[in-house]
Simulated assay, not measured.
Amino acid sequence: MAVLEVLLAALAVTGAATNLYVSSYAGSVTTLSLTKGNSGYDLTNTSSSQGCGSSPSWLELDKATGILYCIDEGLSTPNGSINTLKTSTNGVLTPVEHHDTITGPVSGIFYNSGKESAIALAHYSGSAISAWHTTAEGKVSYIENITFSMNRPGPVAARQEAPHEHEAILDPTGRYLLFPDLGADLVRVYSFDASTSSLVEREPLKADPGSGPRHAVFWSPDKSYARNSTLYFFLIHELSNTITSYRVRYEEAGGLAFEKVQTINTFGGKTVPTGAAAAEIIKTPDNGFIISSNRNDTSFLIDNPDPKNSTKIASDSLSVWQPAANGTLSFIQLAPAGGSYPRQFSINKVGDLVSVGLQMGSAVVVWNRDLKTGKLGDLAARIGVPGQITCVVWDE
C-alpha cells in the first residue's frame, strides 16, 4: 500500500501543470501550460486574451489576489493603458478594468502594500512615471503623473533625445521606487507617502554619460535582506552594454546613497559583438547568481526548432554571473537564449527553469538550470507565440 501511495504521488507531481503568461505586441496575452512527463517538459497554448490594448509590453502578477496587471505601451494609439485581468487555474483570463495612461508604459511594480496598495509605471516614450491605486478585485484609480524633460540630448543623441524611463523597481525595504532612465543617464529615486501612495522625489543616481540605464536588481549577500544588511544595486546599461554594481546605503534624512564598486561589460570582459543591446537582469531565487540578457549579438548557432529543417539558426545570449560579498560580479557562463532578442526572461520559484521571451523570435523557450553551478543547461521546452514577445511571467 505504501509503495502504491508513493507511485500515485509521483504521478501527480509529474502531471502537475504550471501556467505562464505571455504578452505580445500582436495585442494578445497568452496563457501557456507547462507540464512535466516521463520524457520531459511539454509547453502548450491553453488560452489567449485581447484584453490589454494593442501593444502589451509588461505583465505584473498579484499572486495574492490572482489579478494580472497588463501594461499596454500604446504603440499605435495616442495613449498607453493599464489593464487588469482575473486569472484562473485553467488559464482563462477575464478582463476586469482598463484605464488610459500617458503613452509608452513599459514596466510596472507594486508598492505600499496594504490599505493604500498601488502600482507605479515607467513610461519610455512618454518620458514619465505614473502611480495608480489598486484593489484586491483588480480595480485601478489614478494617483498622479510625473513627466521629465532635458535641456539637450545625451551623448548618444539618436537614443537620448529625451528622458526614457525603462523600468519600475522597488527596493528590498519596500520604501523606495527606482526608475532607470535610458535617455537621461539617471536612476530616478522616489519615496512615497504611505497614506496616499503619492511619490516624493529623492536624489537620483547619476550613471556614466551615454551608458543608457535600462533595468536593475538589488542584491545582498545576506539572504534575509534585513534593513541593516549590506546591499548592492546591479544596473544594466543598454547603450554601453555594461553592468555597474553600487553599494547602497540608506540616508538618515531619507533617500539612497550609491557608491560605485565595479563596471564590467555584459560579455564578461570579452569583446562586445557589434549591434549588441543589453536588456534584462534578475537574481536567482537562491540568491546565489545574477542572470542578464543580450539582444542582437548572435553569439550562437543552435538547432532549428523545426525538426524537419537541419539549417541551424542564430541565437542571442544570456550571461550568468556570481556576485561576491564585496559587490563584484564574476562571469560564469554565456549561454544561448534560444533565438532572437531575449527582451525579458523570468525564473520559476525553485530556480531550475528559466523562461525566455524572444521578441523577434516570436517564441517562448524554457531552459533547464543547474541549481548548484548556476549554469543554464539543455532546452526544456519551446513554443511559438504570435507577434513580438515582450514579457513572460510564472504563476506558481
Rank of each mutant, 00 (worst) to 15 (best):
V3N: 08
A9E: 13
A10H: 07
V13N: 02
G15C: 08
L20T: 03
V29D: 02
T30Q: 07
S33W: 00
S33I: 00
S33R: 02
T35N: 01
N38S: 09
Y41M: 00
Y41F: 02
Q50V: 11
Q50N: 12
P56F: 05
P56M: 11
E60K: 11
L61P: 00
G66Y: 07
D72A: 11
E73Y: 06
E73M: 07
G74L: 11
L75D: 04
T77C: 09
N83P: 06
K86S: 10
T89P: 00
T94Q: 13
P95H: 10
I102W: 04
T103Q: 05
F110R: 13
E116H: 10
S117A: 15
S130W: 10
W132G: 00
K139L: 15
V140G: 01
Y142S: 14
I146V: 15
F148D: 05
G154E: 00
H164S: 08
H166P: 03
L170E: 13
R175F: 10
Y176P: 02
P180K: 07
P180A: 12
D185M: 15
L199A: 12
R202P: 01
L205C: 07
K206L: 14
A207V: 11
S211L: 13
G212Q: 08
A216Y: 04
P221H: 09
D222V: 14
D222Q: 14
R227D: 10
L231K: 07
I236W: 03
H237C: 09
H237L: 06
E238D: 13
E238K: 06
T244L: 05
R247K: 15
A253F: 06
G254T: 04
V261C: 04
F267L: 13
K270I: 03
P285T: 03
R295D: 10
P305T: 09
K308Y: 14
I313Y: 09
I313H: 11
S315M: 09
S315E: 09
D316V: 03
L318C: 09
W321K: 04
Q322K: 15
A324N: 08
G327P: 05
L329P: 01
L334H: 12
A335I: 05
P336K: 09
A337T: 03
A337I: 05
Y341G: 00
R343P: 02
K349I: 04
D352E: 13
A363D: 01
V364P: 03
V366F: 09
R369D: 05
G374C: 12
D378I: 12
D378S: 15
L379Y: 01
R382Q: 14
T390W: 00
W394Y: 12
D395F: 03
D395Q: 14
